[in-house]
Each structure stands twice: as structure tokens, then as C-alpha cells.
Design a protein around this nucleic acid. Structure first.
Length: 108
DNA sequence: AGTTTGACTTGTT
DNA sequence: TAACAAGCCAAAC
């Protein structure tokens, strides 16, 4: 069984380009719906070698940029804008860009 | 081993 | 609408 950290990274890698999701959703897909804070903890520890992880596509439940690291917030916004995701006042419009994984969609 | 800490979320004032 | 408090749990100490 991969560590929680690995499952989080795998989940983040699944977020489609041009879309965003929130920590709680990533936590859910990683197997622990209540571990949203740990998702942040994992992303906090990302290194340059993890360039294949689109961490910029993870925002908080309000669509806001949660990074506190100096410069990371602006970097995240720049990366999102380069993917076509508009960021206004450090907040993403989840109605437009919010991504919901297929397995969470109602099967009907 | 027990304690502290957070890139969070949700409910209550 | 904004501020505050409590719950949450993997990792780091």
C-alpha cells in the first residue's frame, strides 16, 4: 500500500489541465475524506523533482489560493493563468473551473 | 510512546 | 458577510 503522500500525489496528477479541485476532494480520492489538511502538508513538502505534480490545480473549498509560502501564491496564479484558468483576487471561479472526478458523479 | 502542527472544512456567532 | 471555534488525521518532533 502506497503511503498517503503517494496517493495524494497520484490523485493530484489526475486533475485535468485547465481545471482545479479542492483539498477535500483530493483527500477523498486519496482515501481519507477528512485528511484535507494533510493534503496541504504533502504539497507543502513538494520538491522541484516533483514537477509532474500539478499542485497549482489544488485550491481551498472557496476556490481561494491557500499557499502561504512567499512567492508560491503568485506562482500558482501564474501557472493557472497559463492553463487558461482565470484567477480574480486570488480566487478561482469553481463554477467554471471546478473539477469533479467521474467516480463522484451520480451514476444515476 | 505521547504531543504538536497545519497549502483544510464546516458549523456557529 | 465576516470572524471565530471545533473537528480532523498523517507526519514530524
Amino acid at each position: 500500500m502506497p503511503s498517503f503522500r503517494e496517493r495524494v500525489l497520484d490523485t493530484v496528477r489526475r486533475i485535468p489541465k485547465g481545471k482545479v479541485t479542492n483539498y477535500g476532494t483530493v483527500a477523498l480520492l486519496a482515501g481519507n475524506p477528512r485528511a484535507a489538511r494533510q493534503v496541504g502538508g504533502v504539497l507543502y513538502g513538494l520538491r522541484d523533482s516533483d514537477t509532474d505534480v500539478p499542485w497549482q490545480r489544488v485550491v481551498n473549498a472557496q476556490g481561494g489560493i491557500s499557499t502561504f509560502k512567499v512567492g508560491s501564491g503568485e506562482l500558482q496564479i501564474a501557472l493557472l493563468e497559463s492553463e487558461g484558468v482565470l484567477v480574480e483576487d486570488r480566487v478561482v471561479n469553481l463554477k467554471l473551473y471546478g473539477w469533479r472526478p467521474p467516480e463522484l458523479e451520480p451514476s444515476d
